[in-house]
Write a protein that binds this DNA or RNA. Sequence first.
DNA 1: CCCACCCTTGCACGTTTGTGCACGCGGCTT
DNA 2: AAGCCGCGTGCACAAACGTGCAAGGGTGGG
Lengths: 330, 330
Amino acid sequence: MIERDTSNASEGADTVSGRTREALRAAHLYYMQDLTMDAIAHELHTSRSSVSRLLSHARASGLVEISIHSPLDLPSRIEQEILARFEIVAHVVPVPDHATDVDRLDRVALSAARILGRFVDSNQTIGVAWGSTMSAMSRHLVPKSTHNTEIVQLNGAGNGRTTGIVYASELLRRFGDAFGARVQQFPVPAFFDDPATRRAFWKERSTQRLLDLQAGMDVAIFGIGSPFAEVPSHVYQGGYLDRGDYEALSRDGAVGDVATVFYRADGSTDGIALNERATGPDFTVLRRAPRRICVVSGRAKLASLGGALAAGLITDLIVDEGTARALLEP
Amino acid sequence: MIERDTSNASEGADTVSGRTREALRAAHLYYMQDLTMDAIAHELHTSRSSVSRLLSHARASGLVEISIHSPLDLPSRIEQEILARFEIVAHVVPVPDHATDVDRLDRVALSAARILGRFVDSNQTIGVAWGSTMSAMSRHLVPKSTHNTEIVQLNGAGNGRTTGIVYASELLRRFGDAFGARVQQFPVPAFFDDPATRRAFWKERSTQRLLDLQAGMDVAIFGIGSPFAEVPSHVYQGGYLDRGDYEALSRDGAVGDVATVFYRADGSTDGIALNERATGPDFTVLRRAPRRICVVSGRAKLASLGGALAAGLITDLIVDEGTARALLEP
DNA sequence: CCCACCCTTGCACGTTTGTGCACGCGGCTT
DNA sequence: AAGCCGCGTGCACAAACGTGCAAGGGTGGG
């Protein structure tokens, strides 16, 4: 859908504005004047179905923004408690407890995608990780036009079987498209086989350039990996790690990862061998970003989330209700 | 609908928050997660119809706000031209040219009501006129909670047959309810019979108090009266003026009125006899309000609108498309 | 303590909206 | 120059939605 506009550009700017202009007018008539689509179709001399599509377009492209204000006197209790206890801003996504994990993830990702616009602005460098959560998010981003904004891939996505480039680049591209931003890919494997290779590679100028961008991020967006949960995250399915790696992680006491960098329940990372081969940013680098948005769904990630909080990785948390409640329990 | 909350307060604050809380959750599920009302009903353990009503409530009470952003590169051409030519901010409401005047007024009023929230804030004094336009608006206001805000009636509404209090007070009350504001009525006729009575009355302390409030207005909201248009405004139907008055107005060259104060095409008011008996604020007082919002619909009011512009009464104009275009024509 | 009233709920119906499909009009390619 | 392909359009059907109505439940007044 979004792509259409871009490809249509070949028809001349008039046409694309024409569509937007009509969408805008339809949106006015629908949302401000409460006309039915039928009536609008009549006013615009087109069919009702076209109006329906026009309105979808208007919403999907951010022309129409729907926001929900809780009255100041009753913000979600859970969000308040999380703020008090962890000093981070939480957005709790209501999801019934009996929902499946897939549902839960989809719904959190959808909400997250719609909230994201608040954090993204012009002249920013935005770090983006990847994984099933980020992937789901990427499919629902609401476009917002910005200038001079840059999307930077936080960690490599290649593995033994694929370069991971198609997967990660597709995801990044969606972010880039949504915000009219340049995209900086990071074409390396998720984990190097040999720490020495990584160290060597890190000295390359092309790599340095990317690392510099990461070091200057304004916003970082990531999910959380949970290697020992029943439903493993993308990283753990894709053939990125072998049996030996798992055993090492277990031995080292890892409870989760952010952008392929692992940490323990207390947030520490020192001495976790696998991190020597990982491609994500060191937490000292990550923490330089003033805004660090974490999207999590599912109680299975509770322990991992706890570790990430202990590590101080998160400034803004988007999380499903059940997990949020569990977080406050102990 | 709004009243319910207030009257329900007797049930205890829990219940009212309860309803709002549910509405909020339903709104999240509907607008952020794209669930169907059926699915939401299931999650909230209620019926689909209740969810429909809950969502209506959420929109009508301002929990959900729908806003339309034109991309910065294509704001309405008409609005730009009006800004350039008259140095006022225009909001053009799209209405097809063949719409009836009643339709047109309704639609402009609806849009105006929804825009109004942007102008109203805490600690403000807001002057409100009356008439068919204001009345239509008052029925669609989107609540927004404010503190210490005051609604002040700009001009009296009584006439030979009724005190006009029920009509004007109902209108004012709707404004007050919508913004949680105190309401200051102005219980005088629209026009005194004798200028001397008016002058005397103006010296009363209770009147003075109100005039002081008017003089300190932050925002004024008014329509425009068009005495010589084919479809006369409310003032001209309600028995406020007699044949002689009309003749006098015609002789004096009046083309319109704002809050029962008449002016000529060039914006001047001096020597218009009827104004000696009118109850609305003198334009020098009105112009002290930093924000002066005028809502107009219908080409019939074009000449009157021109006069109001010449008088510098307007800082923000909400107007239907046809009239806006006509305004730019000459 | 009972009654009358009002508010809320769910149902059933008619209306409104979303979407797969087939068609037709360009633009681009071969 | 002809054909292919992608895109937007309207149709028709199915899904989703709004609303008048009657019934239930709770509250305040008598």
